[in-house]
Design a protein around this nucleic acid. Sequence first.
DNA 1: TTATTTTAATAACAAATGTTATTGCCCGCG
DNA 2: CGCGGGCAATAACATTTGTTATTAAAATAA
Lengths: 224, 224
Amino acid sequence: MSVSTDIRKLKILFIATKPIFAKMDQLMFDRFKNKFPLDDDKWMQYLSYFKRMDVAAKTTLLREGEIAKKMFLVEKGCLRAWFNNDGKDLTFQFFLENSTVASLESFRKEIPSPITLETIEPSVLWYAHKKDIEKIIAEISEVPTLRDKFINSIFERTFDYMKHFFSFIKDTPEQRYLNLIEEKPEIIKRVPQHYIASFLGISTVHLSRIKSKLAREKQPSQGK
Amino acid sequence: MSVSTDIRKLKILFIATKPIFAKMDQLMFDRFKNKFPLDDDKWMQYLSYFKRMDVAAKTTLLREGEIAKKMFLVEKGCLRAWFNNDGKDLTFQFFLENSTVASLESFRKEIPSPITLETIEPSVLWYAHKKDIEKIIAEISEVPTLRDKFINSIFERTFDYMKHFFSFIKDTPEQRYLNLIEEKPEIIKRVPQHYIASFLGISTVHLSRIKSKLAREKQPSQGK
DNA sequence: TTATTTTAATAACAAATGTTATTGCCCGCG
DNA sequence: CGCGGGCAATAACATTTGTTATTAAAATAA
């Protein structure tokens, strides 16, 4: 259980990914612009920074200890961020379509990443290198309205983490599970349960118990 | 227990505070500059935005539901941020000397604050109004180096919340308590234990148990 | 000082949660 | 197809944690 860093996790980026230098389609283009709100002209300049990659499930994109040099955007698929604690694989975040993905602290400070990034489903990602992302951010930062939008997005992330932390001091695990169903139903549907358990801060057994309890409460009478 | 929003909590700012329009001293000046890194000239322009206030312990600076229009800096004293959940008073953050204090989400988005800000000790604070803080931030944002520093500080806050959240999925309450002793020993010394308990996500009784267990382990033999 | 209120420790009991082990299902791979 | 591994449900038991109540100490106010 603490032994097996299994073989799939050892696949390295350039082995697993076979980058495909496809053209970014309109949908993806719009998503990027939402994250990095430059106008179209500027964008055309920068599009070449981004490369598409097609990866299998359980592919590691960044390993704990490495320094994050790329930022990813999810066109299709599902990822998780996790760290190892005492032999246990603890998942603390999920990423679905339209998310930007990076080991944020490693990316910004160029320190070894405390976390691992890994696909859960086969995924289509776009990535760019830190240097190039920084060029875009620098450009954004010169325009007051864009800059505000960018800064807002950072604050929003902070608020998200705050709220998640709040739920650990105010909610029971059952309530946290219900919140997740309410707020991110896609996660429940697409992510294996044992990953969700660690995200909620409980054991897999306990999550299973919560589910069966909820199921029981919902249909107290279910004649044969 | 859930009933008493006692009288002291109802003291309102301008009753409790008696603003003293003192001159900001050199130490405080330096602290501000650390948070809002403008050069001295600019600072002189802005100093008048800040007002000093002297408040008693248990004074409410911002009540849940109000919109935050001020940001505070702590010259001396200790504050906490808390919210009410199901009749329980849950503390999620402490502020000591040299902290900036605000209901961040309320301050930025001008929405009712989900939290209450309250002094724990008699405190000396400096505050400025949102409009004025925004002027300073706008100015900072025009200078690339200062802007980077500012953005970094936002990220740092995000990382702090992330790490605190991590500790809820990887550590036992006992370990979280030990971490707090290690990382913020001042908090342990100055903050009543029942506030620390909710910060750690446990009951007061349980924190008390943890403490006595640790004390027991430390001195297994303590002859008469 | 005396009287109140706040805070902390402890015990006793109840409830929640973790651990380990077992079983069965499902799915991808040979 | 059939096999093996990953995944989920469940049971049984151990441990942790919460709740309520009691008491004492400490801080604060009158």
